[in-house]
């Protein structure tokens, strides 16, 4: 019989993928730490965990419009509005990021004239994403706490056996 792993549970898959997403996000948000070249290529790779994050909440997103109108609690409603807001802000940062590229596009031989407008947008909204994420995480704090306990318990069990 094969052993059960985190891949067999949706919640645990989410936990592991969310951890990668968080690490990726922190790296992408610190271009002074990584350097601009790495920042640009890392941001491109970051799109993968971002899409996975949405794939893992597919059912939630699919039922969103219907639930939003009929039967959401005020907390879930706020959550939903916040997620949409987060998504739009994230799109704005990724779009403006490409439009202010100083490494990727030149490396690919694509000419680009960087407009101050997009620089300003990338700079400001890039920084605003941080508190937006802080609030996104706080809204799921119960889940994060209980899943961390579950994952720890499992890890301890494995150590003992």
């Amino acid at each position: 019989m094969s052993k059960k792993t985190w891949k067999d549970s949706l919640e645990k898959t989410r936990y592991v993928m969310d951890a990668w997403l968080l690490i990726g996000f922190i790296l992408v948000c610190a271009p002074n730490t990584t350097g601009i070249v790495l920042h640009e290529w890392l941001s491109l790779v970051f799109i993968v965990p971002l899409i996975i994050h949405m794939l893992l909440h597919w059912d939630w997103m699919k039922t969103l419009p219907n639930k939003f109108i009929h039967n959401f609690s005020s907390k879930s409603r706020f959550n939903a509005i916040w997620d949409v807001f987060f998504f739009v802000a994230m799109m704005m940062v990724i779009l403006s990021g490409f439009l202010v590229s100083v490494a990727m596009f030149p490396q690919l031989g694509i000419p680009l004239e960087v407009k101050p407008f997009w620089s300003e947008i990338h700079h400001s909204i890039g920084n605003i994403l941080l508190p937006i994420l802080g609030i996104h995480l706080a809204l799921h704090w119960q889940w994060i706490k209980s899943m961390t306990q579950k994952m720890m318990a499992k890890a301890n069990q494995r150590k003992e056996s």
Binding site: N127, L130, P131, L133, G134, I135, A138
Partner: peptide, 9 residues
């Protein structure tokens, strides 16, 4: 910038 707004929330 992530932790402070999160903590406040």
């Amino acid at each position: 910038m992530i932790l402070i707004p999160g903590g406040l929330t």
